[in-house]
Amino acid sequence: MSLYMKYVSILLKSQMQYRASFWLLTLGQCLTPLTVFAGVYFMFARFGQLKGWDFFEVTLLFAVVGMAYSLSECFSRGFDSFSSLVAGGGFDRLLVRPRNTVLQVLGSRFEFNRVGRLLQSAIILVWALYHLPVEWSAMKALTLLFMIAGGIGIFSGIFILTATLCFWTVQGLEIANILTDGGREMAQYPLNIYRRGVTVFFTFVIPFGCVSYLPLQYILDRVQGSALLYMLMPLAGILFLVPCLLVWHIGVRHYRSTGS
């Protein structure tokens, strides 16, 4: 962790060398997602509800997924831009260093201006929580934190899987954005509005439903069965990292230098 924090410190100092640019990018990251949120607002202003879900319930999902995505984008950006390391031969340099490749790739890039998107999502989260008639307890507050942590795990895992493809394709595949950007947009709405095939895939394969829709049922007191099970569902997002890291190590073992 000391090495990881050293990476964070160095890259933060480098990005703050151009402070005006940094703060303008941060402001842009804060304002850009508002256009998406405006679409949600106007949809509910027109129709009132979405298959039994009201505006602030969906807003809570929107904020949680937005916070998870912004944090993952900030600290897992090294995997999102990993193709440049492979194509340019930079990954060879990482392999000869006496440290784990996952740690080195994580520390190769941070996008601190994503704090703008995080701030916007946090404000929306507070707004939604203020208007929702939820009887809060320590367990529900912990579930909310689990939802954010689980979302970070899923998005980071997808970034890792996308980076692993570069061992065979050299360049990243744009189709992977279906699971990152597309998954983010999908998870911002209740899972039961989609067809069964989509619901099953995003619950048992890519467990977005386990970090958004299902634990929200517990927070809103709509559970059927064991409440503890719904509360612990977001841990599936953390467990999702395990197979992603295994696939990564398989890719590293099969890596062949670019020869540059």
Rank of each mutant, 00 (worst) to 15 (best):
L3K: 13
Y18P: 00
F22W: 11
L27F: 15
T32E: 14
L34D: 08
T35M: 14
G48F: 04
F55D: 08
V58A: 00
V64P: 01
M67T: 00
A68G: 10
G78D: 03
S81A: 10
V86M: 09
A87V: 08
G90N: 06
F91P: 02
L95D: 01
T101M: 04
R114M: 15
A128R: 05
L132N: 06
S137H: 06
A138W: 11
M139E: 12
L144R: 04
M147E: 05
G150D: 00
G151V: 07
G151S: 03
G153H: 04
S156Q: 10
G157P: 08
F159T: 07
F159L: 14
E174F: 09
I178E: 02
G182A: 06
G182L: 09
E185W: 11
Y189E: 05
P190N: 03
L191R: 09
R196D: 12
R196M: 13
I206V: 15
I206R: 08
Y213H: 13
L216N: 14
L216Y: 10
I219W: 01
L220C: 04
D221G: 04
R222V: 02
V223W: 00
G225M: 02
S226W: 15
S226C: 09
Y230Q: 07
L235M: 12
A236W: 09
F240I: 06
P243R: 01
L245W: 09
I250W: 11
R253S: 12
H254D: 08
G259H: 11
